[in-house]
């Protein structure tokens, strides 16, 4: 059985890894919002107005949540946002796969260095979703 100390270490590790993943993902998109907009647009799901607003703001939401997870503040709200984002990412990629779109996922690296939408990317996001749910569940005691 895992004792309380080990559980604290696991919680901290999950939180920090999740934070690092989302901060890393955000930085690539913040560097080139125009390219990120193109990658969102390639999913052919949203009108340009929403695409452009998302491209400008979404990476900062990811960054903000990542920083809050590192700071250990507002853990459940930040985790809740990450849960919602991961669900949206998974649905968008599944829809692209079902429509046979051969596009970049827009997950981490963009453009030529970006990885293609595929089952592996969906599994990856399911893992991130699980981690966010874990932080949400374990983060309850941090609500003051």
């Amino acid at each position: 059985m895992v004792n309380e100390k080990q559980m604290t270490i696991i919680n901290l590790a999950v939180r920090l890894i999740l934070a690092a993943i989302f901060i890393y993902a955000a930085i690539g998109k913040i560097i080139n919002p125009a390219l990120f907009a193109r990658e969102i647009d390639n999913y052919r799901l949203l009108p340009w107005l929403l695409v452009s607003l998302l491209a400008a703001s979404l990476p900062w939401v990811e960054l903000g949540c990542g920083l809050l997870l590192i700071a250990g503040r507002w853990l459940r709200p930040a985790a809740l946002i990450l849960i919602a984002l991961n669900v949206v990412f998974i649905l968008a990629m599944a829809s692209a796969l079902l429509r046979g779109l051969n596009i970049n996922c827009g997950c981490f690296s963009l453009g030529e260095k970006g990885s293609q939408v595929g089952l592996l990317r969906i599994v990856e996001d399911l893992v991130f979703l699980g981690m966010a749910v874990w932080v949400y569940w374990k983060g309850e005691r941090n609500i003051k």
């Binding site: 607003l53 939401v61 946002i81």
Partner: peptide, 11 residues
Amino acid sequence: LIIIACGIIGL
């Protein structure tokens, strides 16, 4: 609040 604050910074 997180979404609004980060969204405004992004814009």
